[in-house]
Design a protein around this nucleic acid. Structure first.
Lengths: 223, 223
DNA sequence: ACCCAAATGTAACAAATGTTACAAACAAAG
DNA sequence: CTTTGTTTGTAACATTTGTTACATTTGGGT
């Protein structure tokens, strides 16, 4: 357990020994969830820091009509809801559920405060983690603010291309279904848009491999 | 200046004297901006904490096509970009500009670190502020994830109603133009949707005063 | 009371996306 | 190699929103 935790951003810079020592002084527990089980609903109060220890989880926003916007997967050894433990409105913004059998380490808020007082490294890590969350969410926001589907798609492809560095050849690590969920659109709409870009010779789409043919046109299209 | 700062969330719980003392130990400067002047562009690196001291500012996201999504106004004595000072991607997520003559207190990141080390109260405040930001942004995200304009509008109205506690009578503190910007839609579309809800007897809209007549229908409509 | 600028109402049409339904392709299991 | 379930392609049509253009109203100023 401590080995895994030492790879978590919250405890990076600390040795297993140090982590062990720190944990001996605080209260925490381990909870397990079956595949598909609900971990927290959007709106639930957030009183403890939870770290994904084993398994896998996902966070989604669900609107009144039941439409789902996938926010992200949170695999081990990442923490859940770091940014919602302090501040004034301590509620989960998303619904979190286990995508497979999952175990979480649950640390009550008070213990987190103790941790911060005990370890300066942890404090810094925590601060960075909260900032990173804010930055991540704000990236999502930016992404959703691209009004057109073409824009989102173009943006997404170029982002992937930048990360994968395969000079235009992109591997999409998701099904169209999942992509559509990520974009918050209907699946056939996404398919249609891909097709359109393809027909216009801007990309070459083949299964989960997409090749950018005309980068300029793609960029223009995100307008 | 210290009086104003003591009302800022970052320094709440500290007396003017304490703030004065704290500031005597760090480096900072005051910058002024003319009405309409750009304070920071989205993507600019964020190296310092900036506190709005005088005037008023706004933050907006601008997509490739130039469409604008207003994020928020940041009046004195609130800080800019608290959540983007730490973490790994220290870049402004929004374009910030002065909506009138504005003065900012600029505190370099290193000095902020010093502040946190000096004052535990400041540290707690800072942590809370960053969390609050994350929560705010995440609220925005949730808001944008309501797919239909009716949904956004219904959500917005019910939110306002809850805050204003005037039992269905709502004062909208914005022009339709501004509202449309906030929602990320075109102004006539918003007008049309208001009209529709009105015609269907769900709300009574009169200038900036809106009365919710049929709460259930409004809720259903956000589907 | 009158004028002007800004805000709002409205309509006609264009464009984007959702919905539904089904066919085709694919992939894993036997 | 077939079966079976999942993913993807596609089309027709409905709905929502954008765009443009103009009329109307409102609220200050003088």
């Amino acid at each position: 357990m401590y080995q895994l935790l030492s790879r978590s951003p919250l405890f990076s810079g600390l040795t297993e020994e140090e982590i062990k020592k720190i944990f001996s002084r605080i209260v925490y527990q381990v909870r397990s969830y079956a595949k598909g089980e609900l971990i927290a609903s959007a709106g639930d109060e957030c009183r403890s820091l939870q770290i994904v220890f084993k398994g896998n989880t996902k966070g989604e926003m669900i609107d009144y009509s039941g439409r789902v916007l996938k926010i992200e997967d949170i695999p081990p050894p990442r923490p859940l809801a770091v940014a919602f433990l302090f501040g004034q409105n301590n509620r989960f913004p998303v619904t979190v559920s286990a995508t497979e059998y999952t175990e979480l380490i649950v640390i009550p808020r008070q213990s987190v405060v103790t941790l911060m007082q005990t370890s300066e490294v942890f404090l810094t890590n925590f601060l960075n983690a909260v900032s990173n969350r804010a930055q991540f969410i704000s990236g999502k926001l930016r992404f959703l603010s691209f009004k057109t589907l073409k824009g989102k798609l173009a943006h997404y492809l170029m982002e992937l291309d930048r990360n994968q560095q395969q000079n235009g050849k992109i591997n999409i690590p998701r099904s169209q279904e999942e992509l559509a969920e990520l974009f918050g659109v209907a699946r056939p709409s996404l398919s249609r848009t891909l097709r359109e870009l393809h027909h216009r010779g801007i990309i070459d789409a083949n299964g989960r491999t997409v090749t950018i043919i005309n980068r300029e046109a793609l960029l223009e299209d995100s307008e």
